[in-house]
Amino acid sequence: MKRLLITKTPKVYVGGAFIRSESGRVFAMKDADGNFFANIPQCTRKDLRNAVEAAAKAGPSWAKRTPYNRGQIIYRLAEMIEARSLELAEAITLGSTKKSLVTAARNEVAASVDRLVYYAGWADKLEQVLGNVNPVAAPYFNFTMTEPMGIVGLIASQEASLLGLISLIAPAIVAGNTVVASASELNPYPAVVLGEMLATSDLPGGVVNLLTGFHRELVPTFATHAHLRAVIAEATADERKTLALGAAETVKRIHTFKAEDNINWYSDSFESVYRIQDTLEYKTVWHPIGA
C-alpha cells in the first residue's frame, strides 16, 4: 500500500513564529492541475497590525547591527535558499495556477538567490555611495548620511511569486528597515516556504514578516497604517490610488510599480542602490569646527 503523505499546514512567518491568521480564515490553494493543494492563511488587517508590531519590536536592534553583520545575515539567507533551491522551485511550480516550466522556476530561485547576494553586498557600501560630506560655506563639519525609514510595507508581485517578493524585501532590510510583506495571492506558497527558510537563517525574528491573503483586503490597511513609514508595492491603478490616499493621512512614502506594465522582475533595474534609497531617509548633521 502506498504510504499516505503527511501534508504541510501552510503557516505564515510573523515575528519569528509561524502563525495562522488571527481571523481563522483560510483560502484553498490549487495546483496547476486544479487539484486542492493546501489551505493558505487568509490574513486580515489585524494580522497586518500584529505583523507591524512584530516589525516595530525587531526594528531598533536590526538597525543598530553593523552593516557588515546585516550583509552577512542576508548572505546567509541566500545560502539557505540555494541549499534548498529545489524545494523552493517546486513550491513555485506547485502553487502556480499556470503550468510553469520547472526550469523557469529554477531560474527564478537562482535569480532570487543572486538578488539577495547582490543586496547583501550593499550593506556596508551603500553609505559610501549615497552619503557624503557637504562643503558648507561656514566653519562647520556637515555630512549627509542615510537612515532606514523604519517599518516598510511591501506588496509583492502577483506573478513573480518569489523573485518579486525577494526583490522588495532585500533592498528594504539591507539598510536596517524591517518589513511586512504581502505575498502574491495568486501563488502564495513560495512565501510560505520562504518563511521556513527565513526561520533557519540568522535573520532575527520580526525583521521580515510575511502575510498571505487577498491584496484587496490588505491594501487599504497598508495605505493607512500610520506606523508603516513607507510602502513599496506592485499595484494596480486602483490599489495605487488607495495607497496614495491613505498615505496622505500620515505623509507616508509610497513607491509603486504598475502591475499592468507586466514587470520584468529579472530586469537589472531591480538591482540598484536606488532601490535601497527608496526606503531610506537622508539625515544631515552639522557641527562647528573650532577649538
Binding site: N134, A137, A138, E281, Y282, V285, H287, P288
Partner: peptide, 18 residues
C-alpha cells in the same frame, strides 16, 4: 529628523540637504 544641528542651530547652506 532630517537635519540635526549639533552645538548650533538654524544653519543652512546650498550644499547641505534639507
Amino acid at each position: 529628523a532630517g537635519v540635526v544641528w549639533a552645538n548650533t542651530f538654524n544653519k543652512f547652506d546650498p550644499s547641505s540637504p534639507f
